[in-house]
Amino acid sequence: MADIATRASYGRALADLGEKYMFAVMDADLSGSTQTKKFADKFPERFINCGIAEQNMIGVAAGIAATGMPVFASSFAMFASGRAYEQIRNSVGHTKLNVKICASHAGVTVGEDGATHQFCEDIAIMRSIPGMVVISPADDTEAYAAIEAILKYDGPVYCRLGRQAVPEVFDPATYKFELFKAVPLTQGDDCAVFAHGVMIDRALKACELLKTKGINISVIDTHTIKPLDENTVLEYAARTRNVVVVEEHSVIGGLGGAICELLSQKLPTPVTRLGINDVFGVSGKAGELLDYYGLSVDGIADAIRNSVKNKDGAQK
């Protein structure tokens, strides 16, 4: 299977779902990049290009949703969630309207555009809105399935999509996506690694690498960041007593933050958060940047190995 970017899965899902369901799709001059163009070409009467006006896009989406028609609204994560934050908070969050903000080009894998376009705080700000569902699918199969699931869910959703093509994680023939349910991908007692989005593939590769060194870890695809699948997080934290979170997001407020909030109250456990360390991004190639910020397969494996060492040290 060729690598596919989750934004491409999104476009394909919209174009397919448009045949079965009544909903509108909106964009802000990035329909080729976000891939809403696939829907626009097929259902032009239900596609609304707002021009470069993200705040208005979200406000209009709220109005359309208030009439009963679900809306998907897309732009780069920076502008869809960042520029229009307050509109999302008040016109979509507070109102509980059926708007699905599907934001592509999240994180540093935007690449060469640099700091102003690499939004590594989107999950933090979206997660802080009461009632907002926040998801971040790992690959083509999961993203495609997630789009139908969030359409069927009644309420506001933020869905994070990537620019970069990523390898297949799930088998489309057998994978059953369940919203709100984390997916354990490997089993091991040395460490529980929670990850989402583009980092799933790298976390799995780190798992393979560690296996050759005698370290066995559980990798858990935590595609739904809010509401967090507390039972699964608690179960694996209890089993491993050693948690590592890997995400292409700031170490502040993302999945790492969510897991720390839960564990500090219900099951205090050491947590290592791997992500963007409270800095702005820089220009570079996508893969190169993940490595630069310590999110290479080796970097992840090293951090996990250290966490296991610390755990063993503490037990002695």
Binding site: G114, A115, T116, H117, V282, S283, G284, Y292
Partner: peptide, 13 residues
């Protein structure tokens, strides 16, 4: 331009 380590970022800094 636009390369890792360059001061010539994708957008002006």
């Amino acid at each position: 331009l636009r390369k890792l380590g360059s001061r010539l970022q994708g957008h002006p800094d």
